[in-house]
Amino acid sequence: MQGFVSLPDDPVLRAVSPGEAVRYARDLPEGGLAWVHLVEPTAEDLLPVARALSLPPLAVEDALHAHQRAKRERYGDDMVFYVLRTLRYTEATSAIDTGELMIFSNPCWVVTVQHGPSDAPDAARAALERKPELLEHGAYGLLYALADAVVDTYGHIVGLVGEDIEELELRVFTPERVDLTKEIYSLKREVLEFRGAVRPLVPVAHAFMSPAPQRYPEALAPYFRDVADHVLRVASAVAGCDELTDSMLDAHSTQAGMWQNEDMRKISAWAAIIAAPTMIAGIYGMNFAHMPELHWAYGYPAALGLMASISGLLYRAFRRNGWL
Rank of each mutant, 00 (worst) to 15 (best):
L180K: 04
Q68T: 09
S268A: 12
R225A: 09
D45F: 00
I103K: 03
E129H: 12
L101H: 07
D97Y: 01
R177L: 05
S186E: 11
D9I: 00
Q255H: 08
H156L: 05
Y140S: 08
M258R: 09
F288T: 08
K182L: 15
E218F: 02
G138S: 08
E163G: 01
R215D: 14
P301C: 04
L128M: 08
V151T: 03
V231G: 10
R195W: 09
T90G: 06
P41T: 07
P213M: 02
R51F: 00
V49T: 06
D77F: 02
M307T: 02
H230R: 12
R51E: 14
A66Y: 01
L306C: 10
A275F: 11
L64E: 09
Q114V: 04
Y89H: 03
P57E: 15
L142V: 04
P301M: 01
L187D: 13
T93L: 08
L55W: 12
G285Y: 10
R125H: 00
P107T: 05
V22C: 10
G159T: 13
D10S: 08
H290I: 06
R14M: 04
L192R: 14
N106Q: 06
E176Y: 03
K266N: 13
P217E: 01
V39H: 11
L314G: 12
A269C: 09
P277E: 15
K266M: 13
D242G: 08
I267A: 08
R199G: 05
I103W: 12
A235V: 03
